[in-house]
Design a protein around this nucleic acid. Structure first.
Length: 289
DNA sequence: CATCATGTTATAAT
DNA sequence: CATTATAACATGAT
């Protein structure tokens, strides 16, 4: 499920445990979540550690922990990288929370527990020992480096590539997923199969940034306020969603209509993902610049 | 029972 | 080599 804004929300929810010392760790071994390492290695690295920092980049999360034991220890910090896959969630829970069937990692502290839950197990947890495992990452849509020359490079690099495929490329648009990609295409407005070379890079930059900011406001900010850091209620995945003026609210409803012109939305598979668009606002474009 | 789902990756095909 | 399609992953909702 998680795209840019849901990932940011997940980061904020686990940030409820900042400066908390992990007294015990429960990690279900044998699930795919730990396929890049081992549940035991994570448990032993984090037991006794303190949560120092959290970062998010695109759909990825990085939580930094002190080395287990004394604060003055010379051992390097440990980083836990989290990817939520299609159905992963992070949430804070009461200290005595009992792990459910799909809760794969619990970090227990004195006052609360941090939980990673993922019923589909497409997510993953990876341990990093490097001082900076995120040394070189592409600019995100809201970063300063996401400027016009950068966008011009993205659209001209592979001019024949479908716009939607470019939007889903995490090296180009970190954090953009299936619903945000459709939202951006709809607002441009461009048919999702439009060749990237035909898209105005300045417009693409502006709309992508606008959709990201809106998603943060509607999905991360409001849910974080509602949950509160002491609320603990994991709640449903999305309680607050973008308003009805967004394509998001209509795209999967049978007979859903374009919020702008009222046309019945079209849908089919583009860039191997199911895609919705307005046939009137986003007519197909011939593959030529 | 069949289909689909806010994602990634390995592999095959073009 | 580069782009694109497909299958696989595990579970729940419709």
């Amino acid at each position: 499920m998680p795209e840019f804004a849901e990932v940011e929300l997940a980061r904020r929810l686990w940030a409820a445990g900042l400066s908390m010392r992990i007294t015990s760790v429960e990690a279900h071994p044998g699930t795919r979540i730990f396929r890049d390492g081992s549940a035991r290695a994570i448990a032993s690295a984090l037991t006794g550690a303190e949560l120092l920092a959290s970062r998010a980049h695109g759909k990825r999360l990085l939580f930094t922990f002190s080395p287990p034991g004394a604060p003055g220890s010379s051992r390097a910090a440990t980083h836990l990288e989290v990817h939520l896959g299609m159905a992963g969630r992070l949430f804070p829970a009461p200290a005595g929370y009992q792990a459910g069937r799909h809760d794969h990692l619990l970090l227990r502290g004195r006052s609360l527990a941090l939980v990673f839950s993922d019923y589909r197990q497409f997510g993953r947890l990876v341990l990093h020992r490097d001082p900076d495992p995120w040394a070189a990452l592409p600019p995100q849509p809201l970063d300063p480096g996401f400027n016009l020359p950068h966008l011009a490079r993205l659209t001209s690099r592979q001019p024949r590539r479908a716009l939607k495929a470019l939007l889903l490329d995490q090296a180009a648009f970190p954090g953009i997923g299936n619903w945000m990609a459709d939202e951006i295409c709809w607002r441009l407005p461009c048919h999702p199969a439009t060749p990237a070379g035909r898209v105005d890079p300045a417009l693409l930059r502006r709309i992508a940034r606008r959709v990201c900011r809106g998603a943060i406001r509607h999905v991360a900010d409001r849910n974080a306020i509602r949950h509160g850091i002491n609320g603990f209620s994991p709640g449903r995945y999305v309680e607050h969603v973008p308003p009805p003026a967004w394509l998001f609210r209509h795209r999967w409803k049978p007979g859903g209509r374009c919020p702008r012109c009222g046309s019945t939305l079209a849908r089919s598979t583009i860039a191997s993902r199911s895609t919705a668009w307005c046939p009137f606002c986003q007519p197909p474009q011939p593959p030529q610049a």
